[in-house]
Computed example of a mutant assay.
Amino acid sequence: MTVHPPKREVFDVPAMTNTDNKGFVRPVEEYRETPYGLYMSRSADHPRFHHLESWLLPSLGLRANIFHFTDGYRSDQRLYLDVGRFHGPDSRGRWHAVDWYLDLVDVPGSDLALIDVDEVFAAHAAGLLTTAEATEATEVAVTALTGAAAAGDIQTWLDAQVGGRLDWRSGP
């Protein structure tokens, strides 16, 4: 398995841009800052999806995403959650994300799925993720999995954790 460093992104609210881990800067249609996180909505130049919505939720260690897929790609997926460290705004009004490899996939009618566990172990073995970070990533994922199971679904659990409703452009 080829292991890559943790993916890092910058969400530049004043500039209305999102810089991905490869350095590509994309315009953002909407940013919304709340006491519990940052919402972003932007178009995407990806062959599988044309629009991306994300909520950075620092206190939960999660980034919740809705990918608006093109026809024929994962039409059953509702939410995709990245586990990592999310924080902001910094002194320049920017938010930052570090993806710790683990992901949760929400498909209606199925249990919330945890994926990329092998990547966490490979990154830790390669020295790209500390033991503390790998442990925290695991704890975040387990908390979300058990919370979603107890609440009935991940969206209900997320809403309860932030004390409100995570609003999406088209609903989760």
Rank of each mutant, 00 (worst) to 15 (best):
V25E: 06
V25P: 00
P27Q: 05
P27G: 04
V28F: 04
V28P: 01
V28M: 08
Y31G: 05
E33F: 11
E33G: 04
Y36S: 11
Y39S: 09
Y39W: 08
R42C: 00
S43H: 14
A44Y: 08
H46C: 04
P47W: 11
R48A: 07
R48M: 15
H50K: 06
L52N: 06
W55C: 07
L56P: 02
P58V: 10
S59L: 06
L60F: 12
L60R: 08
L60Q: 12
G61H: 00
L62R: 05
L62V: 04
R63E: 04
R63G: 04
I66H: 12
F67P: 02
H68Y: 08
D71P: 14
Y73W: 09
S75Y: 03
R78H: 05
L81T: 04
V83S: 01
H87G: 10
G88V: 12
R92N: 14
G93N: 06
R94V: 05
W95S: 06
V98M: 09
D99A: 00
W100Q: 09
W100D: 07
L102I: 13
L102Q: 11
V107C: 12
V107L: 01
P108H: 04
G109F: 15
G109R: 14
G109Q: 11
S110V: 06
D111I: 02
L112Q: 06
L112E: 07
A113S: 15
I115K: 13
D116A: 03
D116V: 09
D116G: 08
D116K: 00
V117N: 07
D118F: 14
D118V: 10
E119M: 13
V120G: 02
V120T: 09
A122N: 07
A123L: 04
H124N: 14
H124M: 13
H124Y: 14
A126Y: 02
A126P: 12
L128M: 09
T131I: 15
A134L: 03
T135W: 07
E139A: 15
A141D: 12
V142E: 15
T143S: 14
T143M: 11
T146I: 02
A150M: 05
G152R: 10
G152A: 10
I154K: 00
T156G: 04
L158D: 12
D159A: 04
D159L: 07
D159K: 02
Q161I: 01
L166A: 02
L166C: 06
D167V: 14
